[in-house]
Amino acid sequence: MEKIKDGMWKVEVDCSRSSDLTHVRRLFEDYIREDDAVFETIDYKALTKDQNVSFIDQLGRKALPEDWLLQTVSHVFIKHENNLQKTTLDDADKDNDEKEIEEQDKLFDISQAILTGKNLRNNEFVEDFVKKGYRFTAMTYQFHQKGTPMIIHITADFKGRNRQFEVSIDYVGEWVGYEGIEPTEVPITREHKAMRSKVWANAKEILDGFKKKT
Rank of each mutant, 00 (worst) to 15 (best):
residue 6 D to P: 09
residue 8 M to T: 10
residue 9 W to E: 04
residue 10 K to N: 09
residue 11 V to P: 05
residue 11 V to K: 13
residue 18 S to D: 09
residue 18 S to T: 02
residue 20 D to A: 02
residue 25 R to A: 09
residue 25 R to E: 14
residue 25 R to C: 05
residue 30 D to E: 11
residue 33 R to V: 06
residue 33 R to E: 14
residue 34 E to F: 09
residue 34 E to N: 10
residue 37 A to W: 10
residue 39 F to S: 08
residue 41 T to S: 14
residue 44 Y to L: 15
residue 47 L to R: 06
residue 48 T to H: 04
residue 54 S to L: 06
residue 55 F to S: 02
residue 55 F to M: 05
residue 57 D to E: 14
residue 61 R to T: 03
residue 62 K to F: 00
residue 62 K to C: 01
residue 63 A to Y: 04
residue 64 L to D: 01
residue 65 P to E: 01
residue 66 E to V: 01
residue 66 E to N: 14
residue 71 Q to T: 14
residue 72 T to I: 15
residue 72 T to C: 12
residue 73 V to P: 09
residue 74 S to H: 15
residue 74 S to V: 07
residue 76 V to H: 05
residue 76 V to M: 12
residue 78 I to A: 05
residue 81 E to P: 02
residue 83 N to G: 05
residue 84 L to R: 02
residue 91 D to L: 15
residue 94 K to Q: 12
residue 96 N to M: 07
residue 97 D to V: 08
residue 102 E to C: 02
residue 103 E to N: 15
residue 105 D to P: 05
residue 106 K to Y: 08
residue 106 K to W: 08
residue 109 D to R: 15
residue 109 D to S: 14
residue 110 I to D: 03
residue 111 S to A: 12
residue 113 A to Y: 10
residue 115 L to E: 10
residue 117 G to R: 04
residue 117 G to T: 04
residue 120 L to T: 01
residue 121 R to P: 00
residue 122 N to R: 12
residue 128 D to R: 10
residue 129 F to Y: 06
residue 131 K to E: 13
residue 133 G to N: 00
residue 134 Y to W: 11
residue 135 R to D: 02
residue 138 A to K: 03
residue 138 A to M: 04
residue 144 H to V: 12
residue 146 K to C: 05
residue 150 M to W: 15
residue 151 I to C: 07
residue 152 I to T: 06
residue 152 I to G: 03
residue 154 I to A: 07
residue 154 I to E: 01
residue 158 F to S: 08
residue 160 G to P: 02
residue 160 G to M: 00
residue 161 R to I: 09
residue 162 N to K: 09
residue 164 Q to N: 15
residue 165 F to Q: 05
residue 168 S to H: 01
residue 172 V to Q: 13
residue 172 V to T: 11
residue 181 I to Y: 15
residue 183 P to M: 08
residue 191 E to M: 06
residue 192 H to W: 14
residue 192 H to Q: 06
residue 192 H to P: 08
residue 194 A to W: 03
residue 194 A to P: 00
residue 196 R to H: 02
residue 196 R to S: 11
residue 201 A to V: 07
residue 201 A to H: 01
residue 202 N to R: 08
residue 204 K to W: 06
residue 210 F to K: 10
residue 210 F to Q: 13
residue 212 K to H: 07
